[in-house]
Design a protein around this nucleic acid. Structure first.
Length: 638
RNA sequence: GCCGAUGUAGCUCAGUGGUAGAGCACUCCCAUGGUAAGGGAAAGGUCGCCAGUUCAAUCCUGGCCAUCGGCUCCA
């Protein structure tokens, strides 16, 4: 007698050993048809698998979050099956489920997206055939025999423990897989192949390059469409498109991966930094600036010459080797090391907006997100060991203030000591505990990534979430036990003895260029009034009103409003349309009525028009938005 | 760096082995407008760069450069 307890605490009894499907049917035949898998004592299994002892189970239907992974995994198999039918010589490697879908790495002639249609057509045939997906547990030897012509599978099997190897079969197709899978291929209601790329076998560039074909799958067409729409929306927000449409920045062949900022981009750039400086000054930071080109000896001392040389641009001056800095820290170390410091000066918070260059691989460059030259909003904080907690907390609070100003939420992760590391156990313990207790006091839940820290110290990574729910790692707080040592930095304690300061690196924007790109996509180019390069545009209704309009424009300009005058001989409608497309928050139109009354009419980006507004009201409106840095636009009232 | 795709006017894109087009933008003319594209004209290109094949290359071939999608997820 087997007792199966269900989610609602009811217990079903079975005379003989049941399968998951038997349990599902015991609830109802209808329900059983909708089930895709079963969780037995926390372990996901196929419905066809026997449940040999008393267990707690949860039946998974399309509505359960785990089910989508099973669906996608099975879809990956269907894709592999289809490809094997079309390309009989294809050799399968691995086909896992990933965040928004799945991929399969296959050794086959290069395919392009043009080939997707025929693969998808074949996949549809397999789906329509509703082939049962059957599990088979066989011995390792049998598995090796079965895959005589599949070298990658054989390699995978080699690495597996002795004992049974699990296989899944659908029609003529069998694949090595830990499962579970859908009961039959007919469960796949909506899928799409997304893209293709090259990927190395086991991510090793010295091994064969395979075709990685990406796809996604859902239980309904509607969800697939929603997913595709999300991708479309993200595409519309692409900072590279918006950046050139709004004339913020550009890239040129003459300097790949190194952005050129245009006047409008610079307005925003400077505002981002003005704001940053104001917050940092209030948080007790001082600012320095160190050179971009520094002597090789410095990089040898810091360790970069040996650990980071591949990514560094080097040059030779007066027969001496120099390198363009990829990080700001060594320069900061020199400034600290210049004179002796008292414990009374600590914590010393030394910020630097540093321009760094890193030679990234040509293939990874991507707009402002991945560049070769960028600015870090760096800061190095030197402190005594007992200041760690308070300083980390201070940085977290500063980050919170700054991110919230842009409407970005975030979560934090703590990375601890890796296998290869420097420093003593005691140092690591003190450092890690300092970060941990700061995070605990801070109060937000955090994830711990064991062993993911840098070799020179533990770190906290901050992941922000944008308006589309995408996350980006921008901020980081890294404790460094190496550099103070290498540069022999010290401070004098209260008994006139020398101590080694604790040092952290931290950034909030991270790369200012990248943060800029994230903001463009986060706001879809519709920046808050305080940040937008052009806050208002002044439109005369016709040519004869242009001189009067020019006066209004000049007055508003003199109040510090970033305003443009558009007195081109185009229809009002057209100029309004362009201003809207340029996402200018306020469109001020001036006709005879306004000239006579001395008032203005103002159109906001939502299309609302308010007439009869005093100039001073507009000035105050913009000033209020600048002052408060509010993200939304206040309703206009005359 | 590697795999695949792309590169034609400022932008978005057609197109062909006989040295090129459209729409938008820019300039000019007409229209002088009341809240998301008024009409017309003119101008604008060494078809990414360098070789090769050919009587002839923007088109075919090769190399290079740049851009785009990937190259982290291990049955």
């Amino acid at each position: 007698m087997i007792h199966i307890s269900l989610l609602n605490n009811t217990i079903k009894q079975f005379e003989s050993i049941p399968t998951g499907m038997d349990v599902a049917k015991s609830i109802s035949e209808e329900f059983a048809k909708r089930c895709v898998a079963i969780v037995v004592d926390g372990e996901m299994r196929d419905l066809t698998q026997n449940i040999t002892q008393d267990a707690q189970v949860r039946l998974l239907t399309e509505n359960d979050p785990e089910a989508i992974e099973i669906l996608r995994h099975s879809t990956a198999h269907v894709m592999a099956q289809a490809i094997c039918r079309i390309y009989p010589n294809a050799k399968l490697a691995i086909g896992p489920v990933i965040e928004n879908g799945f991929y399969y790495d296959i050794d086959m002639p290069p395919v392009s997206e043009d080939d997707f249609t025929k693969i998808e057509t074949e996949m549809n045939k397999i789906i329509q055939a509703k082939l049962p997906i059957q599990r088979q547990d066989i011995s390792k030897q049998n598995a090796m025999d079965m895959f005589v012509h599949e070298p990658y599978k054989r390699e995978l099997i080699q690495d597996l423990d002795e004992g049974t190897i699990r296989m899944y079969q659908q029609g003529e197709f069998t694949d090595l897989c830990r499962g579970p899978h859908l009961p039959h291929t007919g469960f796949i209601k909506a899928f799409k192949l997304m893209k293709v790329s090259g990927a190395y076998w086991r991510a090793d560039a010295s091994k064969a390059q395979l075709q990685r074909i990406y796809g996604t799958a859902f239980f309904s067409k509607k969800e697939l469409t929603a997913h595709l729409n999300f991708i479309e929306e993200a595409k519309k927000r692409d900072h590279r498109k918006i950046g050139s449409a709004l004339e913020l920045f550009s890239f040129h062949d003459e300097a790949p991966g190194m952005p050129f900022f245009h006047p409008k981009g610079m307005v925003m750039w400077n505002l981002l930094l003005d704001y940053w400086r104001k917050e940092h000054q209030a948080a007790g930071y001082v600012e320095i600036k160190t050179p971009v080109i520094l002597n090789r000896l410095l990089w040898e001392k810091s360790g970069h010459w040996f650990n980071y040389k591949e990514n560094m641009y080097t040059t030779s001056i007066d027969e001496m080797d120099y390198a363009i800095k990829p990080m700001n820290c060594p320069g900061g170390m020199l400034v600290y090391g210049l004179k002796s410091h008292s414990y009374k000066e600590l914590p010393l918070r030394m910020a630097e907006i540093g321009l760094v260059h890193r030679h990234e691989l040509s293939g990874v460059l991507s707009g402002l997100f991945r560049v070769r030259a960028f600015h870090q909003d760096d800061a190095h904080i030197f402190m005594t060991p007992d200041q760690i907690e308070a300083e980390i907390l201070g940085v977290l609070k500063l980050m919170e203030r700054i991110y919230h100003t842009f409407g970005l939420t975030f979560h934090v992760e703590l990375s601890t000591r890796p296998k290869k590391s420097i420093g003593t156990d005691a140092q690591w313990e003190q450092a890690t505990n300092g970060l941990k207790s700061a995070l605990q006091i801070y109060g937000q839940e955090f994830k711990i990534n064991e062993g993911d820290g840098a070799f020179y110290g533990p770190k906290i990574d901050i992941h922000i979430k944008d308006a589309l729910g995408r996350t980006w790692q921008c901020g980081t707080i890294q404790l460094d036990m190496s550099l103070p040592e290498r540069f022999d930095l010290t401070y004098v304690g209260n008994e006139n003895d020398k101590h080694r300061p604790i040092m952290i690196h931290r950034v909030i924007y991270g790369s200012i260029e990248r943060f800029f790109g994230i903001l463009i996509e986060h706001f879809a180019g519709k920046f808050p009034c305080w940040l937008t390069p052009v806050q208002a545009v002044c439109l005369p209704l016709n040519d004869s009103l242009a001189p009067y309009c020019e006066h209004v424009y000049q007055r508003l300009l003199s109040h510090g409003i970033r305003i443009e005058l558009d007195s081109r001989s185009e229809t009002l409608q057209k100029r309004i349309r362009e201003a809207q497309l340029n996402k200018i928050p306020l469109i001020i139109t001036i006709g005879e009525k306004e000239k006579t009354s001395g008032k203005l009419s103002v159109r906001t980006l939502d299309g609302q028009v308010t007439y009869g507004i005093d100039e001073q009201t507009v000035v105050n409106y913009v000033k209020n938005h600048i002052e408060s840095k509010r993200m939304d636009m206040e309703k206009f009232t005359s």
